[in-house]
Design a protein around this nucleic acid. Structure first.
Length: 433
RNA sequence: GGAGAGUUGGCCGAGCGGUCGAAGGCGCACGCCUGGAACGCGUGUAUAUCCUAACCGGGUAUCAAGGGUUCGAAUCCCUUACUCUCCGCCA
């Protein structure tokens, strides 16, 4: 959530930023008016509540003193003590009314802040759909053309027994592919290679839990915004993670990180679970969109001053992976309308699916600035300064299924599928046939 | 799953109804000492929020979380979470 403190005095520029997301002026005006109003009321009520409390403490101390000195045993002292007790009871009653009011105001304030998305960075282009995304880096050279006999990845999978959707349906339901034989080995090889590359680049590896509690889901902003997107284990009130970003970023929830330890670079491989309710049809065929998929995720905690340099570093890392795999790719800078709720600036990486002749998103790299850290209270401190919020960033490096799809299609020939050179040490075989 | 014991500041650890944001120690920071260092000595060392121009000062909250008893709760009671020990189960 946005920091109210920072919003104060910057209402105009904040409004301009939100307009880039396609939010109406009146709506923004309404939110801001509400915030100002609630903030004022909160401060007023808080002050009054604290005065009551202060008074209660003071009187209680005096009563204590009466008992201690034995005065309370004399008639006069007893009367006085009783009178004070009544005073406190009276104050407590007033306090509880005030507290109830204050709590309500704070709930409303929080809710209002939860409803406002992050402010887009100045580089974010205005626009309301993917058509308005800025092509930050286009594919190098012309896109490859496959021969007429070339197959889409789901046909290749059948032909060479790489993964099987029907088996997944038997075991679970649609959208839960079962990887088999060399398909499974290739998947594992990619995971290991991605992890090795990240480790080489200075990321430390973590294997987090795949189920998270409510606080964690709230921390990275999946709750309350995207409740329907996650699988929910109701009996224990745990959520299956939609991305490793959730447990990994939350490792630092409520922490104050020493500034000398920044940037913190973490990488984790996890399966990801997404309900993707209501998406069926040709565009989700094969591995294009599934309910369970593997992903290697990189996460950083950075100093506010250089978080955008860290974002560039992450972009370069992801780009390096795609280059090494020799897949045609392009990089988009998302426009305001396409930007995730919690993000300030996002770059999407897309690879070319040569058989489907369309772009597939394989990575999304974002800087959330303090939007997440404000909810999670992840802070940093140098020697003399007061703690301040860190910037959080994350990106896929990479999401496996679509990389698999594009790779199988591009690397196919008449007799089989070639394994990209960089993966051979991890698969142990050079060809699938 | 059953029985019991716990959860206090960055860490260890006291406190079991009043003046406790909390003794003492460790760690850390600064200073003195020293040619330099160790030792020693001194000082300081939570966070949030409100008032304020101010991290100058003051108020309030926080001793796992939430609720209760009381004039007053770290201390008593209840609920929940977590940790540990024993038993059961188990890859």
């Amino acid at each position: 959530m946005l920091e109210l403190r920072k919003l104060k005095g910057h209402w105009k520029s904040a409004a301009r930023a939100l307009e880039k997301r396609g939010m109406g002026k009146e709506k923004i005006e309404e939110y801001f008016h509400q915030l100002k109003n609630l903030d004022m009321r909160r401060r007023r009520n808080l002050q009054q509540a604290e005065e009551f409390r202060s008074e209660i403490k003071k009187i209680s101390r005096e009563v204590g003193e009466l008992f201690k000195t034995g005065k309370a045993k004399e008639d006069e002292g007893t009367a006085l003590a009783n009178k004070m007790r009544e005073q406190v009871l009276n104050l407590k009653h007033k306090l509880s009314l005030k507290e109830a009011k204050l709590e309500k105001i704070e709930d409303e304030l929080r809710e209002c802040l939860y409803n406002i998305p992050n402010l887009p960075h100045e580089l974010v282009p205005a626009g309301d759909s993917e058509e308005d995304n800025f092509v930050f880096k286009d594919a190098a050279g012309s896109l490859p053309r496959l021969s007429d006999s070339a197959l889409p990845h789901w046909e290749l999978a059948k032909k060479y027994r790489l993964f099987d959707f029907e088996l997944g349906v038997k075991v679970t339901g649609s959208g839960f592919p079962v990887y088999t034989g060399k398909g499974a080995a290739l998947q594992r090889a990619m995971i290991t290679w991605f992890l090795s590359k990240a480790t080489e680049a200075g990321y430390s590896e973590v294997i987090p839990p795949l189920l998270v509690n409510e606080d964690t889901a709230r921390g990275t902003g999946q709750l309350p915004d995207k409740e329907g997107q996650m699988y929910h284990a109701e009996k224990d009130n745990f959520y299956l993670i939609p991305t490793a970003e959730v447990p990994i970023t939350n490792l630092y929830r409520d922490d104050i990180v020493n500034e000398s330890e920044l940037p913190v670079r973490m990488v984790g491989y996890t399966p990801c679970f997404r309900r993707e309710a209501g998406s069926y049809g040709a565009h989700v065929k094969g591995l294009n969109r599934v309910h369970q998929f593997d992903k290697v995720e990189i996460v950083q905690l950075a100093r506010p001053e250089n978080s955008y340099e860290q974002l560039d570093e992450m972009l370069a890392h992801v780009e390096g992976l795609l280059k090494a795999l020799k897949l045609p790719y392009r990089i988009l800078r998302l426009c305001g309308g396409d930007l995730g709720f919690t993000s300030a600036l996002t770059y999407d990486f897309e690879v070319w699916s040569a058989a489907q002749e369309r772009w597939l998103e394989v990575s999304s790299v974002s800087n959330f600035e303090t939007y997440q850290s404000n909810r999670m209270m992840i802070r940093t401190r140098s020697k003399s300064e007061k703690p301040r919020l860190v910037h959080t960033l994350n990106g896929s490096a990479l999401a496996l299924p679509r990389v698999m799809a594009a790779m199988l299609e591009l690397y196919q020939d008449e007799k089989g599928i070639k394994v990209p050179d960089v993966l051979v040490p991890y698969t142990g075989f050079k060809r699938i046939d």
